[in-house]
Amino acid sequence: MIRYDCFEWLAPQMKDELVVTSLSGQRVEWGHLSHRDADLTLGSMGNALAVGMGLAIALPHRKVFVFESDGSLLLSLFNLPTLANLNPPNLAVFVFDNQKYSGTRISWPTATAGKTDLAAIAKGAGVEHSVLIREFEEFKREATGALKESGLRFVVCKIEESLVHRKIVRSNVDLLETKYKFVRYLERTEGKPIFAGRG
């Protein structure tokens, strides 16, 4: 399974779902395929899941997707017990596990290249719907479920290391622009002010 294929299939199906991505290849690929104001492409490892939890709790009527990587999740395993106990029914977490720290320049095995099973860790933390998948058809099934059904979903997608993201011309959108675009979108769609303003 290739992450870019998963995103290419999923991006056109997104409507008003909110998406939070962690750093590196998936941020580049999702940003390349999806150009929605509802995407918060964080440039940060170990932060996306917590931010997604905060969004899901603050906006329980909105569906929130979080795209994590194995490296990012390994940096923030402390999120999993909190995720399990909060159990937000409007949150779907997809961890794209290529078993590598695979950014723009490096390729180095993570713990999941060894004995570590992130789906089992999440299960042990108390996340009931925690699954490990390897096939594209399984991804489509889980993603469709996440789009259509309620309930916390934690899906570890075992993917091949792909270097597609290194061939994509990087977006010139600044992190602050991403924040403004995303939060202004929420102000519009939720009908409430969020920025207090600097005026």
């Binding site: 939070v20 917590a50 931010v51 905060g54 969004l55 899901a56 906006l59 909190t82 969020i194």
Partner: peptide, 26 residues
């Protein structure tokens, strides 16, 4: 005030950021 207990302060900061973007005053 809605209180959320976190396992770690780094996570707590991230949850606050998400909640702020969602319109809360965290």
């Amino acid at each position: 005030i809605r209180y959320v207990g976190a396992a770690n302060e780094a996570e707590a900061a991230g949850i606050c950021m998400g909640a702020w973007a969602g319109g809360k005053k965290p």
